[in-house]
Simulated scan of single mutants.
Amino acid sequence: MTLYSGRLSVAVLFAVAVAGCAPDAAIKPNVVSYNNTGSVGAPPSTSAQGTTTRTLPQAQGPYYIEFRSRYALSYGHTYVIFGRLDKSGRVLDREVAGLHPASNSAVPYVLGHYIPVPAETGASDGDLDDRYRSASWRVTLSEAEYTKVVAFIHDLQKRSHYWQATVYNCNAFVGEIARSMGYKTPGIWLRPQQFVTRLREMNGGPNAVGYTGPAG
């Protein structure tokens, strides 16, 4: 039993080192949040790296997609939320898509660092709770843009049956969505907060603008 426990501990530590959906314990619980809608963004705040983040006013579309990461007791997670906005930029409805093992047990997460494990692609516990949000970036969309990306997301969900930490994890799933929209994507082995933050930093354009102020 001791030998087995030791091997399991090594596996968990290895998971911490290489997984895209890795533990966020080392990251301070501050949200790095960006969007391109000045009327609905949070006021300027200071990120975990001491950087001021705020939004730039942009023309709003009636729809949105938000690339988001969250904390968890043991693992962080990267996913997307998408839906409609009202004229004031408030969310009218939302849907969640993200890749994660199809279990609340820790065992599939450990096994998933060696072999693919069955996955789900919908919401998981904590996805819609802002207390657990570690980073986010919202992009507003026209109806045509939204229809196209939602069709891609639903098709991707139908095709994504397995989770594997080093090959196809939650970052990889979200990265496919971002690339379908024409965005550049960072490596899939980043921590979820770092992945979402880096995704915003790598991209620009009239419908994807954020601003990071000087270090404070």
Rank of each mutant, 00 (worst) to 15 (best):
V96Y: 00
G76A: 00
L99R: 06
R70L: 09
D125S: 15
R90G: 04
D93H: 12
S47H: 03
A72T: 06
L73D: 11
T78C: 01
P116K: 05
Y109S: 01
G98N: 01
S88A: 15
D86R: 15
L85V: 10
A119L: 13
Q49I: 02
A102I: 04
Y34S: 04
T46C: 09
R54C: 06
L92E: 14
S39G: 01
S124P: 03
E120I: 03
F67R: 01
Y75I: 05
V107T: 13
V80H: 00
P62V: 00
A59G: 11
G41P: 04
T37S: 13
V107S: 07
G38I: 08
T51A: 12
H77Q: 14
G61L: 09
Y71I: 01
R54H: 08
G98T: 03
K87H: 15
A123W: 00
I65M: 06
T37P: 01
N36Q: 06
R90T: 07
R70C: 00
F67A: 07
A48K: 10
D86F: 12
V110Q: 02
L111N: 04
S45F: 05
G126R: 02
S74M: 12
S45K: 14
G38H: 08
T121R: 04
S103D: 09
P108L: 09
H100P: 00
S124E: 14
D93L: 09
S47L: 03
T121G: 07
T55D: 12
N35D: 15
A59R: 13
V40D: 04
S39M: 08
Y79E: 01
G98P: 04
P44I: 14
S124F: 11
R84Y: 05
N35A: 07
